[in-house]
Computed example of a mutant assay.
Amino acid sequence: MADTVLRLTGIHRSFTQVESPLHVLRGVDAAIRAGEMVALVGPSGAGKSTLLHIAGLLEPADKGGIEIAGVKADGLSDKERTAIRRDKIGFVYQFHHLLPEFTAEENITIPQMLAGVPRAKARDRARELLGLVGLSARAGHRPAKLSGGEQQRVAIARALANRPRLLIADEPTGNLDMHTAENVFALFADLVRGQGPGGAKLGALVATHNLDLARRMDRIVEMRDGVLVGG
């Protein structure tokens, strides 16, 4: 599949319980292309978060293949997996997880510096991204001085800081009111589809309970009995 940014093949994941293993993922297959938003739905406890963690290389699968932007990630060392997460994957969560003691600009600058980008260049990129999400005037504000929607927009900008190919989002609008959620989703969609400045297309896997938003994405896949169906 051309320009596939995420490919999962036969992903299995189980957790040990007292009486018997709990099989959460039972052979998940998925592929996401650049410019495509895929909604991941399913009831609580179905394994959505586990799948996101595996797709984002935050935890290993028991079995199966993982490919991120053409790089096979299964079987790599922790250091190699960390490098792929840093360089190719951006994360957006329901709660923004911004560093409270740092400004919006600094929250976007720091991940770049951790990746080896010089401070001045990282700062310029942070200012560019804050402009992209409409927050240039709020660059010097700490998270406590930002609204919920502004905090989430900073979190999206931070996720883009190292120019990832894949975005992993877990309920990115779940903590926002309806109007703010609509604005954040529209921004997120524009960025994924390459409609913002720069025009680079990303792939996105978005877990959500909001079926209205899910229907506006390119595909919906449902976690059911440990596999993905639909889409």
Rank of each mutant, 00 (worst) to 15 (best):
M1Y: 14
A2F: 08
A2Y: 10
V5F: 12
L6P: 02
R7M: 13
R7G: 05
T9P: 07
G10D: 15
G10F: 14
H12M: 08
H12N: 12
R13P: 06
S14W: 08
S20G: 02
P21A: 00
L22Y: 10
V28H: 07
A30Y: 15
A31E: 15
A39H: 01
V41K: 06
S44Y: 13
T50F: 05
L52P: 02
H53R: 12
I54D: 04
G56T: 05
L57I: 08
L58R: 06
L58Y: 13
L58C: 11
E59F: 03
P60I: 07
P60Q: 09
P60H: 05
D62F: 03
G65Q: 07
I68Y: 04
I68V: 12
G70P: 07
V71G: 02
K72F: 13
K72H: 14
D74Q: 15
L76S: 10
S77P: 01
D78M: 08
K79E: 15
E80D: 15
R81E: 10
R81L: 10
A83K: 05
R85T: 08
R85P: 01
F91D: 06
F91Q: 07
F91Y: 15
Q94W: 10
F95Y: 14
F95V: 04
H97G: 05
H97F: 15
L99I: 13
P100G: 04
A104Y: 14
E105R: 10
E106W: 12
I108T: 04
T109Y: 11
I110S: 05
P111K: 05
M113T: 00
M113V: 02
L114P: 01
V117T: 11
R119Y: 07
A120S: 07
A122S: 06
D124Q: 02
R125K: 14
R125D: 08
R127H: 12
E128K: 03
G131D: 09
V133E: 00
G134P: 04
L135I: 02
S136G: 15
R138E: 05
R138G: 01
A139V: 03
P143R: 04
S147N: 04
G148I: 00
G149A: 07
G149Q: 02
E150F: 10
Q152S: 03
A155V: 00
I156T: 00
N162Y: 02
N162V: 01
A169R: 01
D170T: 08
D170I: 01
P172V: 03
T173C: 12
G174K: 13
M178C: 09
H179K: 15
E182G: 13
L187E: 07
D190W: 14
P197M: 01
G198S: 05
G198Q: 09
G199C: 08
A200N: 13
V206A: 09
V206Y: 10
A207W: 15
H209E: 13
D212Q: 07
R215P: 00
R216K: 11
M217S: 04
R219L: 05
I220W: 15
V221C: 11
E222N: 12
E222K: 14
M223Y: 12
R224C: 10
D225H: 11
G226D: 13
L228V: 14
L228Q: 10
V229Q: 14
V229G: 12
G231K: 13
